[in-house]
């Protein structure tokens, strides 16, 4: 269990090389490509964190925008008082707390209630934040002035993404991950094995929420002016669901396959046809359900399995194609 297999070491090396290459990017470009890459890394962190919870449990969480906004707000409120790393941690903690509360209220019952609850969560939090700000006599918006350049934010986000991946990998190796696998396959069986399914799901949702909150906190300096409608924009939640499902949620790195192309597409659409983003999002959802129910990765694996069946290759070729 604790021993690393050769395959895992290879994946770790490839991953490290990819991260190192990605970290070099700001050296070459500080403009368009850095902005685009920051978006890609941001959604990579969000979607992978989302998949940590929604992948094994199959619950569709739409709480991303709420966690993300709380992270952003933690930084915006405390930037003049506390150091930035403390605020990022605080953003994660507040998001985890909210995730715990939502989980405790809904994850004990059926999954439908969870979806409905998270559907309006960002809007609810936005209403409460706006109302509190008005009651306290503060202005609606908050300024976030820092010395961070876009490159700094990019590096921090990249580090967070690595942390999400590492956590995801550690979870799959732990008792928690093993239990989750059973829950994902059959919850009834899991309960009979003596697994406290509700508690596990809540813990996992809190971990996932904490990372999303931290991503929001790290991104806060980019906005420089934070107000509730922008910070709690519900579109983020839906984009995360689309990208993660587009890639495939069966593997930890599955969402990446959806994040990279879809971020580029969205960038293009919002630059050229800013009013038609809802139509693109709608078509993407329909495409996922009707064309790619298991994501691009699932489709590729299906194709590979069909190829292997139809053309019984030599044993050596099969061994070479064996998944890493």
């Amino acid at each position: 269990m604790t021993q690393l297999s050769a395959g895992e070491i290879r994946i770790a090396l490839i991953g490290a090389a990819a991260v190192a290459a990605a970290a070099m990017l700001p050296v070459f470009d500080q403009g368009f490509y850095l902005t685009l890459s920051l978006n890609i890394v941001l959604f990579a962190a969000l979607c992978t964190a989302w998949t940590l919870f929604s992948g094994p449990t199959h619950y569709i969480s739409l709480a991303t925008a709420a966690f993300f906004g709380l992270g952003t707000y933690s930084v915006a409120l405390g930037i003049d008082v506390l150091p930035f790393p403390v605020l990022v941690a605080a953003g994660g903690a507040v998001a985890a707390l909210l995730a715990g509360l939502v989980g405790a209220a809904t994850l004990r019952i059926s999954g439908v209630y969870f979806v409905i609850f998270t559907l309006g969560l960002a809007e609810l939090i936005r209403q409460i934040v706006s109302w509190t700000q008005v009651k306290l006599g503060a202005s609606m918006g908050l300024y976030v002035f820092t010395d961070f350049s876009e490159a700094h934010i990019y590096w921090m986000m990249l580090a967070l993404t690595v942390a999400v991946f590492a956590t995801g990998w550690l979870i799959t190796r732990s008792r928690l991950g093993f239990a989750l696998q059973i829950i994902g396959n059959d919850e009834q069986v899991a309960r009979h094995c003596g697994i406290d399914t509700a508690r596990l799901k809540i813990v996992l949702f809190m971990i996932s929420g904490a990372f999303i909150g931290m991503a929001g906190a790290i991104l806060a300096p980019r906005y420089s002016y934070v107000e509730p409608p922008a910070a709690f924009s519900p579109t983020v939640s839906f984009l995360v669901v689309i990208m993660a499902l587009l890639g495939g949620t069966r593997r930890l790195w599955g969402p990446l396959v959806g994040v990279v192309p879809f971020t580029i597409v969205m960038e293009f659409v919002s630059a050229r046809f800013p009013n038609d983003t809802p139509i693109v999002i709608g078509l993407a959802f329909l495409a996922i359900v009707f064309v790619l129910p298991d994501g691009v990765l699932g489709r590729l694996e299906q194709l590979r399995a069909r190829l292997r069946r139809s053309r019984p290759a030599s044993p050596a070729a099969v061994a070479a194609k064996e998944p890493a």
Partner: peptide, 24 residues
Amino acid sequence: GMLEVDSILATFGLLFLFQGLMLR
């Protein structure tokens, strides 16, 4: 359970599609 997930995703698609068409 599968129908629930599928229908949720499909009607999300309709939600955004209709919303986009109405915005247009």
